[in-house]
Amino acid sequence: MTPSVPSVLGEMAQLLVRNADPAVPAAERTTALTLSAMLLGLAAEVWDDAAERLAVENRALAALLPDTADESSLKLSALKAENDRLRARLIEAHIAAEQAGDAARLDAIWAELKASTERRLLSVSLV
């Protein structure tokens, strides 16, 4: 997810410390902690699947483009950077397929785009 989970958790840690101060107005503390709780819930939901989702998607994109998915590091940040690179290439491939009128290729790209949203689907998704 963007912003990255570690950067948000780090900010949440500081926010919790700030809200431990009794001088923080009650209404502001309520807002801050409620939103933080919702964010922590989302982070918990995606945590276990995050690396696998990125690896699966990167392989799917690499097969479609074609390209090679770099898996030299399994850090989430590295997998995400590779995902961004491949998705940028997917945009170029999509434009090329549109210009060529390549219906089969377009179908394959749209199928991957739909699959990408299903991989990212949250329990609280509105669509």
Partner: peptide, 12 residues
């Protein structure tokens, strides 16, 4: 953060 995490994929 919440709109980005909650809505980016839903908007897609």
């Amino acid at each position: 953060v919440y709109p980005a995490w909650w809505l980016l994929n839903a908007q897609d």
